[in-house]
Design a protein around this nucleic acid. Structure first.
Lengths: 248, 248
DNA sequence: CGGCGGTTTGAAGACTATCAATCCAGGTGG
DNA sequence: CCACCTGGATTGATAGTCTTCAAACCGCCG
C-alpha cells in the first residue's frame, strides 16, 4: 500500500496542504473498494439511482448528458484524484453519465462515508469545498469558451486545459500527451460538430502551435497558444488560508 | 431580528433540513455586516483581491467574466440565500465580476468565518457542499443548453430557470415575474447577440407560450414550454440523507 | 424638448451544421 | 499473409443560424 497510486485522494489533497495522520487515515477509509472499467465503459448512466461516490485511482473519464435529439454534451473530465460527487451527491440518482475514456480504476464508497469525513475531519470537508469551487470555476470557463468564442479558441482552450490537468497529475512536463478522445468527443465537449472539429484541428495545425500524430497531441508553444486564446489555468492553486485546523 | 428576511441562509438551509439551535446560531454569525448596493452596481470586479464571501439578503445579482474582445459571459445568477463562495473561495481574488441586477442587500464576512463554520457545524459544511453541487449541475445544464441547442431553446430554458428560482425564493407561485435584465444581459447569459435575443423573444411570443410587457414576463404554459425545451429543475431538491448529525 | 439607454428591424456576411462521400488504420477471419 | 470490416478521420457542397453593422424607434428623465 505504499504504492503512490493507491492513495489518489491523499496525494491530491496533500498537494494543497500538509495532511495530519488522522486526516490521512480518514481519507484511506474511502479507498477500500476498487473496480476496474475498460476504456469506453459507462460507469453510471444519467438518471440511474446511486448513492455511491467514485474516486479516480487511475485513468481518465468524462461526465456527459444526452439530449432528446440524440446530441450529447460532455460536461467535464475526471483525472486521478478527482471525486465524482458533483453529479450524484445532491440527488438519489446520477445527473450525468460517467464514461471511462481510457481504462480506469475507481474506488467507490457510499455518500454517507463522505458525511462522516465532514464530521470527523472538518478541515478536509472545507478543503473539498474549496476544490469543488475551483472545479466550478473551471466549468464556468468552459461555459464562457462555448458561449462566446469561435471554434478554434474552444478547441485550443480545451487542449490547454486537458494538458494542464495531466501535467499536474501525471507530472507530464512537456506539452506532448495522448488524447484518447474521438473528434466527436471533442465536439461534444466544446459544442461543435465532428466535421467542424476536424477542420478546426487542421486550422490549429496550420498556425504551427499544435501538432498531431494519431492520438498524440503536441502543443508546440504553450505560452503563445495560451495568450492567443486567453487561457487561464484554474487547477494549479487552491487557497487554504481560510481552513480550520486539521485534526491530530 | 424576527424579520424573516434577516436570516436568508438560515431560511435557505432550513428548507432542506431542520436546523438545530446551535446551527442557527452559527449561521447568524455570518449575518452581521450588511451593505446595500443600488441596481447596476459592481460589488466586486474580476481579478480584484478579496477574502470576503457575500450572502444575498435581498435582490438579484449576476456573476460574469469579460473577454478580451469586449464580450462578456454571465455565468450565473444569485438570489436570496445564495452564497458567492464559488468565485472567491479558492483564490485570493475574485474569479468573476459580481453585479447587482436589482437593488441588493448583501451580508459579507471573511472566508475564515466559513472555515469556522465547517469546524463547528460539520453538518452544515456538508450541506453547503451538497448545495454547491446542485449549483454546479445547474451550470452544467446551462453549458449543455449553450453548447448544444438553438437560440430559442436557450432563452426559454433561461426563463424557466429564473422563474423556478424566483418561485422557490420569493414564493412567486404564478408564472409572471419581472425580469430586470436587458436583452444584452440575456444574450450574455446564453451566448447570443442582443439583436438575436430580440428576434428569439419575438419567436417565443409567437408560440404563445410566453408573453412580454416591458420587463414583465409571463410564461403562459410552464409545463408545455418545459417539455418543449426539455427543462429540468435542479433547485427544488437536495439530498440530505448522507449528512452527519447536526450539532446540538 | 433633447439626451440616453435599450429595443426593434433590416440587409449582408461569417461561422457552423448537415449530409454524404471517401479515405484510413487497426482488427478479424480465412 | 491478405482480403475484408469497421469505426473514425477527412473532405466537399450546401443550407442555416447567428453575427455584424446600422439605422430607426421608444419610453423615460432631467
Amino acid at each position: 500500500m505504499n504504492d503512490r497510486s493507491a492513495n489518489p485522494l491523499e496525494n491530491r489533497l496533500g498537494q494543497y496542504l500538509d495532511l495530519t495522520y488522522s486526516e490521512r487515515d480518514a481519507l484511506r477509509m474511502l479507498e477500500r473498494h476498487e473496480r476496474v472499467y475498460p476504456a469506453g465503459t459507462a460507469v453510471i448512466r444519467e438518471g440511474e439511482p446511486t448513492s455511491d461516490v467514485h474516486l479516480v485511482r487511475s485513468g481518465w473519464l468524462h461526465g456527459s448528458t444526452s439530449l432528446r435529439d440524440g446530441g450529447r454534451q460532455i460536461l467535464r473530465f475526471y483525472f486521478v484524484g478527482d471525486l465524482t460527487t458533483t453529479f450524484s451527491i445532491a440527488w438519489g440518482m446520477s445527473a450525468a453519465t460517467l464514461t471511462a475514456v481510457s481504462e480506469c480504476s475507481l474506488y467507490h464508497f457510499p455518500r454517507e462515508a463522505l458525511g462522516r469525513l465532514f464530521a470527523s475531519q472538518p478541515r478536509l470537508g472545507a478543503l473539498l469545498y474549496g476544490v469543488a469551487a475551483s472545479e466550478h470555476v473551471a466549468m464556468a470557463d468552459r461555459l464562457t469558451s462555448v458561449g462566446r468564442t469561435d471554434g478554434m479558441t474552444r478547441i485550443a482552450t480545451l487542449l490547454l486545459d486537458i494538458r494542464s490537468r495531466l501535467r499536474i497529475i501525471d507530472g507530464v512536463e512537456g506539452a506532448t500527451f495522448e488524447l484518447p478522445l474521438t473528434q466527436q468527443d471533442l465536439g461534444d465537449a466544446v459544442g461543435l460538430t465532428k466535421a467542424h472539429v476536424n477542420r478546426t484541428l487542421k486550422a490549429l495545425e496550420n498556425t504551427g502551435l499544435v501538432e498531431r500524430d494519431g492520438k498524440v497531441i503536441r502543443i508546440t508553444d504553450v505560452e503563445r497558444l495560451g495568450k492567443m486564446v486567453d487561457f487561464r489555468d484554474r487547477h494549479s492553486h487552491v487557497a487554504i488560508d481560510w481552513l480550520p485546523e486539521g485534526g491530530k
